[in-house]
Every structure is written in structure tokens, then in C-alpha cells.
């Protein structure tokens, strides 16, 4: 019985250890924040997810509330923080509401996507 219990615990440990950080990636928080109003225009967006990302298949686009596309640089993921997507903005944002559309693939190939708004105050 003791051996069986040890075997079960070992199997569970292996299952969890082998798949650490493998799950659907959801947006945990962002800078500027989801739904937030900021006083100054950001130079980049920082999207933090619940799981590590595959940089090649992860990115984001920005548009004004009216739908006009905002130029962005290539989205990057730092090795030091593999769950954070950095999106440099190619232009200074004017006061207004902006829509961020993101799509990511977590390291276990789960895909997810979403959108949110933030506001640059006048």
C-alpha cells in the first residue's frame, strides 16, 4: 500500500512538473491597464499573460475608437519575462480612446485572443 501511494504521488508530481506553465494564456493585466485612463501617452504597451508565450505567434494591434490603425513596432517577448508581450507604439497617441486587439499562443500551443480599450486623457 505504501509503495502504491508513493507511485501515485510520483506520477502526479511528474504530470504537474512536466507541464509547468502549460495552459491557456489569458490576459492578466496590462500597461496601460485594461479599461484604464492614462494622463500621458504611452510609448509601448505591456501585456502580461497568465502563461508563457511563443513570440513568433503572439502580437497585438492598436486602433483608435473610430477604427483608424495606429502604427506599432514588432511585438517582442523578453526571455526574462516570457509571459509579457511588449508592443512598441510607432507614434505618439493623441487624447482619445484606443482599442487593443491581441492574439497569443502559449508555450503548449493553446491559442487565445481578445481585445480591450484604454483612454489617453486630454
Amino acid at each position: 500500500m505504501k509503495n502504491f501511494r508513493t507511485l501515485v504521488l510520483a506520477a502526479l508530481a511528474c504530470a504537474f512538473a512536466a507541464t509547468a506553465a502549460l495552459a491557456h494564456a489569458f490576459l492578466d493585466h496590462a500597461v496601460p491597464g485594461v479599461g484604464a485612463t492614462v494622463q500621458s501617452a504611452p510609448s509601448e504597451l505591456e501585456l502580461s499573460f497568465t502563461q508563457d508565450l511563443v513570440p513568433a505567434f503572439s502580437g497585438a494591434s492598436v486602433a483608435s475608437a473610430e477604427g483608424g490603425a495606429i502604427a506599432t513596432g514588432k511585438a517582442t517577448v523578453n526571455a526574462a519575462s516570457p509571459s509579457v508581450l511588449h508592443v512598441p507604439l510607432g507614434q505618439k497617441l493623441k487624447p482619445g480612446v484606443y482599442v487593443v486587439n491581441w492574439h497569443v499562443v502559449s508555450v503548449d500551443t493553446h491559442r487565445s485572443a481578445g481585445s480591450y480599450k484604454f483612454t489617453v486623457a486630454p
Partner: peptide, 26 residues
């Protein structure tokens, strides 16, 4: 328990077809 997240490469994926349900259709 979400087995597709606990063991996505083994018993947490479909027996046949793509390993992730609904993959590529987002």
C-alpha cells in the same frame, strides 16, 4: 481538473486529430 492543461501532450489531448480542441479557429 483540467487535464488538457495538466498534460497537453499526452492524456490531455484528443485521441485523433489536432492536439488542441478548436485550435486554429480563434
Amino acid at each position: 481538473f483540467f487535464l488538457d492543461d495538466i498534460a497537453p501532450d499526452s492524456f490531455g489531448k484528443p485521441l485523433f486529430g489536432p492536439p488542441q480542441a478548436r485550435a486554429g479557429r480563434y
